[in-house]
Every structure is written in C-alpha cells, then in structure tokens.
C-alpha cells in the first residue's frame, strides 16, 4: 500500500513537472509569436511592411519600360501628434525598377520641439514586399522645432517582380508621436500650457 502510494506520488510529481514546463514553454511561445508574426508578415506582406534596400542595389535593377504602376501617397497624423502632414504629390506613375523620389511635407503646429515617427503601410498587402525604399523619413525619428515646416524626401523603387495583377500601390504614412520621448514631451507641453495660464 505505502509503496504503491509512493510510486503514485512520484508519478504525480513527474506529471506536474512536465506539464509545468509545458505551461512555461507556452508562456514563452506567446512572446515568440511576436517575432514569428514579423516573419509571417515579411513572407505574406501582411500589414504592408515595406522593405529597405541600398541605393546601388536599387539603381542596378532593370527597368521594366513596358509596365506602368500607379503609386498613391497618403499621409495621416495620429491624434496625439500636433502636426500637419501631407504628401506633396498625390500619385505618380512609375516603371518597375525605376528609382523615384517624392516629398512629403510636415509642419509642427506647436510652440515647442516635437519628435515624430512615421510608420509606413502599403495596400494591397501583396505589393508590400515589392516596394523598396532607399531613403525615407520613416527610417529615423524626425524632430521639428516650434512651428518648423519641412519637406521630407522619400526615394523608392518598385521591384519588377511585382505581381502582374497589381496596378496601383497605395503607400500610407502615419506620423505618431515618437514613443520614447512621450513622457518628456507631455511634461513640456503641460508646462507650456501652464505657463500661458499662469
């Protein structure tokens, strides 16, 4: 009886240990889904994450003169960023493989320095991985002084491998308040408005 109970206890402890490890692994798996999701997005173009390549590489690609792709530009400012932001051109027609440069315009509407981060997105999603940029204001955080307005360049190339059925590519940028400066910004803005009240 006791021996049997002893064996049973050991068996139970084994189960607890194994399942406990399994549960912890699954907890880790939840976090592993984050990079896995990025890989998945890269493969499928989900959520329109665009690519970045070097200029030389872009210039070396062959231009497909027989095909024209319309590229539309959109600009959105997130509600927490007091900026004006818009594309200088609404749309261009480009040959795949051709390096093209366009400008966006952004202006800081506040009387303090504000940093923003632009996040790109492409529709339709399947075009995203064929849309490569060599230069973009979205690569780094952009800082604008009080009331400063600035043209922001974007140089891109559409990969000739773009599926035949895609004829229009829409590129959207959403400007967010740059994340790690949020706290200081909030304080300075509050201070600003406090000063003007007092």
């Amino acid at each position: 009886m006791t021996m049997e109970a002893d064996q049973r206890r050991q068996a139970n402890q084994r189960v607890v240990k194994r399942l406990g490890i399994a549960a912890m692994l699954m907890f880790g798996f939840g976090f592993a889904l984050v990079p896995l999701y990025d890989v998945f997005c890269d493969i499928t173009g989900l959520n329109g994450k665009t690519g970045r390549i070097e200029l030389e590489q872009a210039l070396s690609s062959t231009v497909d003169k027989d095909r024209l792709v319309t590229v539309e530009f959109l600009g959105t400012v997130h509600s927490d960023l007091p900026w004006e932001f818009k594309p200088m051109v609404r749309r261009v027609k480009v040959h795949p493989g051709e390096v093209t440069e366009v400008n966006y315009y952004a202006r800081n509407l506040t009387d303090g320095q504000v940093a923003g981060q632009a996040i790109p997105s492409v529709a339709p999603g399947q075009a995203a991985k064929y849309f490569n940029k060599t230069e973009c204001f979205c690569f780094t955080r952009q800082t604008l002084a009080a009331g400063e307005g600035k043209e922001m360049p974007l140089r891109f190339v559409v990969d000739p491998g773009l599926p035949e059925e895609v004829r229009t590519v829409s590129l959207s940028y959403t400007f967010f308040q740059a994340k790690d400066e949020v706290t200081t910004e909030t304080i300075s803005m509050e201070k600003g408005s406090l000063d003007s009240i007092l």
């Binding site: 007091p82 900026w83 509407l109 506040t110 803005m189 406090l194």
Partner: peptide, 24 residues
C-alpha cells in the same frame, strides 16, 4: 484661464489622453 492656453489645448490636444489635436 488664459486664452493662449485654451487655444493651445484645443488646437494641439493633449498627448497621452483622448484629447485630440483639433487644429488639424
């Protein structure tokens, strides 16, 4: 309170809250 502060918060919103920047 002061007019400038009022104009500022309506136009530029308040980061980290639901108050949007209505200037845009």
């Amino acid at each position: 309170g002061d007019m400038a502060g009022h104009v500022d918060i309506v136009m530029n919103g308040k980061a980290g809250t639901a108050m949007q920047a209505f200037g845009a």
